[in-house]
């Protein structure tokens, strides 16, 4: 059996403010295989976003092991973490997080700029992914000129542009109405069917069904894991 793309073992995250310790994640064990679509569900404040931040190398665990693509994430320098984020991870945020001063095209090509890719190649790749999400006709628009659903499509295109090993989506439908939300989910499903690995945080049960596996978090712990239509109690 091949090694999982993501391997978490005894992961802990503790926040300390004014001498009060908050255990955001407790003894989390998790493997995500290549090509898998995993959703993480749970009530507000259960640690979903913290887990996603750690998976995306935006945050570091207090203890435990995190191995991404066979490489341990512990002890990485800021510069190396930035490089891995750029090459291995694609982010999709709830609030889209497009840069308002950049056009749709410039937003999409940004990860490729950071990668140092030549302009011509950047252009081809960016237009390809914009085509893929159906937004190539809006390439020269500013984000403020797009609807919420369109902005999230652009965000997906941006996440895809660098051909990452995994897409991390944090409540990607949270800021969208139901029809736009469904459209974005269809897009993610399509990507998954074409082989993308996706890890999505959501509390909308309608969308967890799209995932191969749903992990439920409560008070920082994984309390259950549900494979498509089948529940296991660890």
């Amino acid at each position: 059996m091949s090694h999982p793309l993501i391997h978490l073992e005894s992961l802990k995250k503790v926040f300390t403010t004014d001498e009060i310790e908050t255990h955001a994640l407790v003894e989390v064990h998790l493997d995500i295989q290549r090509g898998e679509f995993v959703s993480i569900a749970g009530p507000s404040g259960c640690g979903k976003s913290t887990l996603l931040s750690i998976l995306g190398l935006l945050d570091t665990p207090t203890s435990g092991t995190y191995i991404l693509n066979d490489a341990p994430a512990a002890g990485l320098k800021l510069k190396d973490r930035a490089r891995i984020r750029n090459r291995e991870i694609g982010f999709i945020f709830q609030s889209f997080n497009l840069i308002g001063d950049l056009t749709v095209f410039e937003n999409v090509e940004l990860p490729l700029v950071y990668r140092g890719m030549p302009a011509k190649e950047r252009r081809t790749r960016s237009m390809e992914v914009l085509e893929e999400v159906g937004m190539s006709h809006r390439a020269k628009h500013l984000p403020s000129q797009l609807s919420g659903g369109q902005q999230q499509r652009v965000a997906v295109a941006r996440a895809l542009a660098g051909r990452p090993s995994i897409l991390l989506a944090d409540e990607p439908t949270g800021n969208l109405d139901s029809s736009n939300g469904e459209a974005v989910m269809e897009l993610l499903k399509g990507l998954h069917q074409r082989g993308s690995t996706i890890c999505m945080v959501t509390h909308d049960t309608r969308f967890t069904k799209a995932a191969d596996r749903t992990i439920h978090l409560f008070d920082g712990r994984i309390v259950s894991e549900e494979e498509a239509r089948k529940q296991h109690v660890p």
Partner: peptide, 16 residues
């Protein structure tokens, strides 16, 4: 700061 955060999330190094 939000934009800088996005840029870093997309792989922009602190130096960059």
């Amino acid at each position: 700061s939000r934009e800088i955060g996005i840029r870093m999330a997309l792989g922009g190094s602190p130096q960059r």
